[in-house]
Nucleic acid binder design. Structure first.
Lengths: 123, 123
DNA sequence: GAGATGTGCTAGTATATGTGTAACACAATA
DNA sequence: TATTGTGTTACACATATACTAGCACATCTC
């Protein structure tokens, strides 16, 4: 799986890396049981520091997207906690929807947008 | 309108302030034409520095939620740019939905969540 | 044993954030 | 005219975060 980092972005590198991996899982380019490159390999591929990759992996582990095995490295392993996932999603959506609502984005337009995005995830 | 800041939050104070004002507009507690407290007043009320408030106001102006009049201060004034609003919303949703998708949150559950949130906005 | 791995540690630089003080130009008002 | 309140700008300072760098260690694979 190809990782692309925008070094001019205002988003931290480790956040970009986390998001790309999460997107990879959502779009099935990464599947349960797949292994991620080692922190050193990934760091070399992207051209960043090992510790930055390690930070991303560690956070992904804490958030339940991968598990880390000293023998095999980082493995995609989803820890499904739906209640927590819904809560976290709501926190994100509250502000995002408020912004849209101020800009007169209608409820149906949001639903349509959700469908567009979801079409690329579950197929 | 009461502003509440969580000083222990990992979110920057000026971001919290921006979000609360945006939420205020979305829930109609703030309406088009309403004036916000001056940067010094708001700073005193919350117990933070003037510059932090000024940063929030300036960003809110850049994002088209208020306009700033030297005589009257900050005034709620929505600059409706729906296309831009939809693009920004999509960027936010892509990652948020990917996380949920990984955690097996279904499409219908997301739609339901959207409705819940929207019910508090447009009434 | 040799090599690769995750992990922990220290240290440095750069940027973001928040505070503090001060000054400026402008508008409203006494 | 003088005062007050406004947004704006500038500078300095402290703290936290992000990223890099190098080193060391225990573990695992070959």
């Amino acid at each position: 799986m190809v990782i692309e980092i925008d070094f001019n972005s205002d988003e931290a590198i480790y956040v970009q890396l986390m998001n790309q991996i999460i997107l990879g899982i959502a779009t099935s380019r990464l599947q349960e049981g797949d292994t991620l490159p080692s922190v050193r390999q990934m760091a070399d591929n992207i051209g960043i520091n090992m510790h930055t990759v390690n930070k991303a992996y560690t956070l992904l582990k804490q958030e339940g997207f991968v598990s880390i095995d000293r023998r095999r490295g980082a493995i995609v392993a989803i820890d499904v906690d739906k209640i927590k996932a819904l809560e976290e999603m709501k926190e994100n959506l509250v502000v995002a929807l408020a912004k849209g609502c101020c800009k007169k984005v209608s409820r149906s337009e949001v639903h349509q947008l959700i469908d567009e995005i979801f079409d690329e995830y579950d197929l």
